[in-house]
Design a protein around this nucleic acid. Structure first.
Lengths: 191, 191
DNA sequence: GTCTATAGGCAGATAGAC
DNA sequence: GTCTATCTGCCTATAGAC
């Protein structure tokens, strides 16, 4: 049982990384088994419905990972605006060295699958909403108006997702850092 | 010669649409020839280096198309802030009906290819920079400070790209419309 | 230049030995 | 449950008839 959990967890971890970096179509089952070192049968044992089921689990895995990172920065910084800024700056760092690039958490996979797999689309939508909700709740907790908070979540996701696209394309943290700098403009601090 | 130009133009138009909607990996040569009605030899006649060369031409085609649309709204509206807003609202409309969705101009293809094809990465980077530059020039023309203008271009690309990801994933114009609403906050009007 | 048939490789998936 | 060998089908690309 231990070994089974270890295998499944290992597959999930490797697969999540590859899906983030390469996207859905470019990431093959063969590549995943190669990088995990596990035999192909192992993947189909743990994920009988194949690639789509594995991707679905990987999306949830990534979703949780990003959630935790957002919460980490909220706990670390004094207010939510500083936390968003710190999160984005931290995300920008991976683009300093090409070999450090971890990819786009879910934006790439979401765009690839939104029109061809309803389960994957819904899972990505849920992930975006979870991240958004954390921001919204924190805005409300800090005393912002409800409608301001509601839009803050959407803007946070847009700015981050769009910034990553540009930083990845340019292989340069610059665009994301510019986005981070603009955060206080978009979300004026309270009081 | 006329027929040759017509064929090439037709391939480019169809291919650009498919790359925008489905991305690089999900779009096959076979699908392109099927939708154009042209034989496979025709593609390899016009684009001897195959899929990558065709995608490169499609990126330039799409780049110009978006450029023209941005300029259209700049000419139509009173100032650049209104123009950006109008452009984003117009982009949001495709998400009202699933069958109207045209996809992500270059964001998806850029993310898919940034790490595997240097020519495609550079072409996407150039496209983003062209769109950015149009916005920057207009900001300067309207009397904004140079550093404000420089960041405006990056933010415009980020907000648009990130908003489209969410609207596509949600199959809902809402996120892009929320982004459009926020535009005047991010770029306070002069005077 | 236009069009067709096919090569060659790799993907996802499966059957079945152990 | 673990692992391997193999099937089927699709992909890009090419050769070559017309």
């Amino acid at each position: 049982m231990d070994k089974k959990l270890d295998s499944k967890e290992k597959i999930l971890q490797i697969a999540s990384g590859l899906f983030q970096l390469q996207g859905y179509h470019a990431t093959g089952i063969n590549q995943i088994i190669k990088e995990t070192g596990l035999p192909k049968g192992s993947i189909y044992h743990h994920f009988p419905n194949g690639k789509e089921e594995l991707a679905l689990a990987a999306v949830k895995f990534t979703s949780k990972y990003i959630e935790d990172r957002i919460i980490f920065f909220i706990n670390k910084e004094l207010d939510v605006v500083d936390a968003m800024q710190a999160f984005i700056i931290d995300s920008a760092n991976q683009f300093r060295n090409p070999e450090d690039i971890e990819g786009i958490p879910l934006g790439l996979l979401a765009c690839e699958t939104a029109l061809i797999s309803e389960p994957l689309r819904l899972a990505c939508m849920q992930a975006f909403q979870n991240w958004e909700q954390i921001i919204v709740n924190q805005f409300i907790k800090e005393g912002y108006e409800k409608d301001v908070a509601a839009k803050a979540g959407i803007l946070f996701n847009s700015l981050t997702g769009g910034g990553i696209i540009q930083s990845l394309t340019n292989k340069d943290p610059g665009p994301l850092l510019a986005v981070a700098e603009a955060i206080p403009l978009v979300f004026p601090k309270k009081g």
